[in-house]
């Protein structure tokens, strides 16, 4: 005779997994937020010493041009300018220390998984604005070798921009597409396409420049960071107008090498 005792733990295991995933998402979200906040406070804090340095220098130049100055006054002003340069340096050093804690880690991962995770963050925004996110990924895409948090950040940024670009089009047009294809044996191309207001021609060139923004309250940081993340992965990030109206951002990332 055999006595079998069994308990179905599938449910419990599932709950644990969900909890763990949520925890992980929380950590990632907080890190994404910190990046944005950091960039913004960096700009604000650096403004003070930089403006002060410019003032001290301009004051010196003016007096020297006029030939009307006391040596000790100029010396004092230059010393204060040097102090302010040091203050700016300290701000930068502090920021760098914060970033250093997160060395990029590249690992093979499926794009679908990565898109899912980025979508989880974007969904709140999508629901709020009534935007439909359409993911169209071909089957059997090779895995990509990237730092997952970094590429998620790029995706999230592009998705959020896309959603924002559509906030003045009718609801039935608010659809954002995430697509992908393999371009050659080394790279995978991901496209994020919106049906929004589109980009002015001159902005196509400038939009990736740091501190350039087309949004009234934008910092001009997002796309600049995205581009350096993609370039760090030996990929490219660019933008094209969509024939049907709107904008499409495309980037490439390396795929896993097959050992043969």
């Amino acid at each position: 005779m055999r006595v079998q005792i069994a308990a179905d733990i599938t449910d419990r295991k599932h709950i644990d997994e969900v909890n763990q995933q949520q925890q992980k998402r929380l950590e990632q979200t907080s890190r994404l937020i910190t990046m944005g906040e950091m960039a913004s406070s960096l700009a604000h804090e650096l403004n003070q010493p930089l403006s002060a340095i410019a003032n001290y220098c301009a004051g010196c130049i003016k007096r020297m041009q006029a030939g009307n100055y006391r040596f000790e006054d100029l010396l004092a002003a230059m010393q204060k300018a040097a102090d302010q340069a040091e203050r700016a340096g300290k701000i930068i050093r502090r920021m760098r220390d914060m970033v250093k804690k997160s060395d990029p880690k590249r690992e093979p991962i499926s794009l679908a998984e990565l898109v899912d995770e980025a979508r989880a963050f974007a969904d709140i925004e999508a629901q709020r604005t009534g935007t439909q996110i359409v993911v169209e990924l071909p089957e059997n895409l090779p895995r990509i070798v990237v730092d997952r948090i970094m590429i998620e950040q790029v995706l999230l940024n592009l998705v959020k921009n896309g959603i924002e670009a559509m906030n003045s089009v009718p609801f039935d047009r608010r659809r954002l597409f995430i697509q992908a294809r393999q371009t050659d044996e080394r790279m995978l191309e991901v496209a994020v396409a919106d049906q929004g207001h589109g980009l002015a021609e001159e902005d196509v060139e400038r939009i990736f420049a740091p501190f350039y923004t087309t949004k009234p309250e934008g910092m001009g940081i997002g796309l600049a960071i995205c581009r350096s993340i993609i370039e760090f992965h030996q990929g490219r990030l660019w933008v094209e107008p969509r024939r049907e109206g709107g904008t499409v951002f495309r980037f490439t990332v390396p795929i896993e090498e097959e050992d043969e």
Binding site: N55, Y56, A81, Q84
Partner: peptide, 16 residues
């Protein structure tokens, strides 16, 4: 409220 801004601004403007 920033001391360096006040001081440097005075230096610049007094120079003018």
């Amino acid at each position: 409220d920033d001391e360096a801004m006040r001081d440097s601004m005075s230096w610049l403007l007094e120079g003018e």
